[in-house]
Write a protein that binds this DNA or RNA. Structure first.
Length: 207
DNA sequence: CCCTGATTCGC
DNA sequence: GCGAATCAGG
């Protein structure tokens, strides 16, 4: 595949939209994300945010090394300490909506229930927005995620699926988030946000 | 481990 | 010009 006019156009468009190189590559097909990035650079539309007098890192300038042998990997200090995930077990009380419906059971419910009101029985269910005060942002995010969650079952959980439990395990209104995990963590980004939040909120956004 | 973009360099 | 390999950060 070569960089035809159209393809370049798509590239520009998507890059402008903030799409990732891999996404663009996938869209275009026949190219890898490296190709996309390479092209992006050649087109001169790489980095966008450049304050005045931007410090040009370039870093390892005069490498003068024909043999890119860079051994000796300084390992990051092994840290091992995280908050513990919410528990799933625990029998809970009945908490669900009344079934005013009498007709057919939802074989493939297309209509998401509007309001979900979870009233913990009083036992440590997941860090629900009860007394705890988590980032309002994080909570909002979670609420949103729960709508779009994949709602998978226990047996569908994998290392890549968010294992955040939703609903009441004692009822059939229970599922796991199932979205893509936030690498490393057992939850998706949104749930990681409410799962681990020892202290200060995150504070960084730069590069 | 996954993913991102950035850079280098042989082709 | 192209893009795989590599690097560096999240």
């Amino acid at each position: 595949m070569s960089w035809t006019d159209e393809r370049v156009e798509v590239l520009k468009k998507m890059w402008g939209e903030g799409q990732s190189a891999s996404q663009i590559a996938k869209e275009l097909g026949g190219v890898t994300r490296n190709a996309v990035i390479g092209k992006v650079h050649r087109l001169g539309l790489s980095n966008r945010a450049s304050p005045a007098g931007a410090a040009k890192p370039a870093a390892t300038e005069a490498k003068a090394e024909a043999k890119p042998k860079a051994p000796a990997k300084p390992k990051s200090p092994p840290k091992k300490a995280e908050a513990e995930p919410p528990k799933v077990e625990e029998e809970a009380a009945e908490v669900q909506e009344p079934r005013t419906e009498s007709a057919s059971p939802p074989a493939q419910p297309k209509v998401p229930h509007a309001r979900r009101q979870i009233i913990p029985a009083g036992q440590p269910l997941p860090p629900q927005p009860s007394a705890n005060e988590i980032s309002p942002e994080a909570l909002a995010k979670v609420n949103e995620v729960e709508k779009t969650a994949k709602k998978i079952s226990l047996m569908e959980l994998t290392e890549k699926t968010c294992k955040w439990p939703v609903g009441d395990p004692a009822t059939d209104q229970f599922w796991f988030c199932g979205l893509n995990v936030q690498q490393g963590k057992p939850y998706c980004e949104a749930h990681v946000g409410v799962a681990f939040q020892p202290m200060s909120s995150r504070r960084d956004r730069r590069r």
